[in-house]
Design a protein around this nucleic acid. Structure first.
Lengths: 213, 213
DNA sequence: ACCTGTGAATAGTTTCACAGCT
DNA sequence: AGCTGTGAAACTATTCACAGGT
């Protein structure tokens, strides 16, 4: 297999996939790169490059077929089978994630919840099976969990991630403000701390403003 | 003012700021770029460049002074004053955000919540003032709100964002899966949809695996 | 010995331009 | 007329290398 796909490109392909799901319901069964570009705020050239980079789509001279492209992407991105997900940290945010209907609809089954507070484990009413945080590694392994969502306080974040990784997850979404670094290169971590985002937006405005003056 | 700071660089500076907050409590009052690099998973060269790009820090030959660098960053990134934030969409996730203590601690005051469901507005118990979604623009303007957090269903996302922008926010964090595009260039949008992140992690693993084979 | 600051080199990503298809 | 596919150009970002300081 030839060229590695860049992170940025994978990111765009995922947005693209999302857009295609929406377009699927529409009347028109074809889309052009420029229409997709407008929808996602990406340059059309870029979209063509991305699509083409996953081995050409065989589409020809007048737009892409929405259904076909979607199916192709699904396969290429590995989104054609459900994935098993665990949530660690059952505070307000963690519980909101547990009950997030959209996850299952999109092929991500939450099959386990973890917390270090026994009280919580007994109180929370949910269909998801709950375990103590000490069991993370073994449950992840036994239940063949692919991905972990971390919603614990920052001081527990790295330790939580290490346990998930030891259990064998291939990716982690980290909502805690502490940046998680994955020792192994085959595990990808996506850090999406809210405070960090707000800081970024603030900084962004400041710097843009300064640049103009 | 000379060179515009790149998005990636601002992003790194924000992580850096976070790391400095943590280091501030520690015994050692100095950090080296390599130590910071290890902590954040960034190359030391890169960190030096970033720090230096905001007008040199005056630090000399043996590490940076944690406190001084933090203060400098605070000022440069515009994090030295509190910002006013609104949350739109008071479902499970929105309510979790409303009560997120860390926001206020970090200088982001949530001063308004919005929803289009009157029932919710009456039921939710919180210190934050709640309004109907129709009032977004006027309240944002009157309360001088800087940033918006969007936790509405995807079909309402763009409309919500438009209202926030009309009211005058300078940035939006969008938790909904629908990509929001801001017409005006002075408004930055940060899209952080959970399903999208999980898709990305899935795709990432698949592509890495394929590359190796 | 270990650190920062920074010009130069390298690598990587995006944009352009146009050939070719429908 | 409008579209995709793609090599080449332009641009941006990262990494290197080393001068200079403590």
């Amino acid at each position: 297999m030839a060229k590695k796909t860049s992170t940025a490109s994978i990111e765009r392909l995922c947005s693209l996939y999302r857009a295609l799901i929406e377009l699927e319901g529409q009347s028109d069964s074809r889309v052009s790169s420029s229409k997709l570009g407008k929808l996602l705020g990406i340059a059309p050239h870029n979209i063509r490059k991305d699509i083409n980079s996953l081995g050409e789509q065989g589409e020809t001279g007048a737009g892409y077929d929405v259904g076909r492209l979607k199916t192709a992407l699904e396969k290429k991105l590995g989104l054609d089978h459900t994935r098993r997900v665990a949530v660690v940290g059952l505070g307000r945010l963690g519980r909101a994630v547990l009950e997030h209907e959209q996850l299952a609809e999109s092929g991500f089954d939450i099959v386990a919840g973890f917390d270090s507070n026994i009280n919580r484990l007994e109180t929370i009413r949910t269909d998801v099976r709950l375990y103590h945080a000490d069991e993370i590694s073994s449950v992840v392994r036994k239940e063949e969990i692919d991905l972990g969502i971390v919603t614990v306080p920052s001081k527990a974040a790295q330790e939580t991630a290490d346990r998930l990784i030891r259990g064998g997850v291939t990716g982690i979404v980290n909502f805690s403000p502490k940046v998680i670094v994955s020792g192994r290169s085959e595990v990808t971590v996506s850090n999406i701390d809210l405070v960090g985002r707000l800081r970024f937006l603030t900084a962004r405005e400041k710097m843009t403003f300064e640049y103009l003056s």
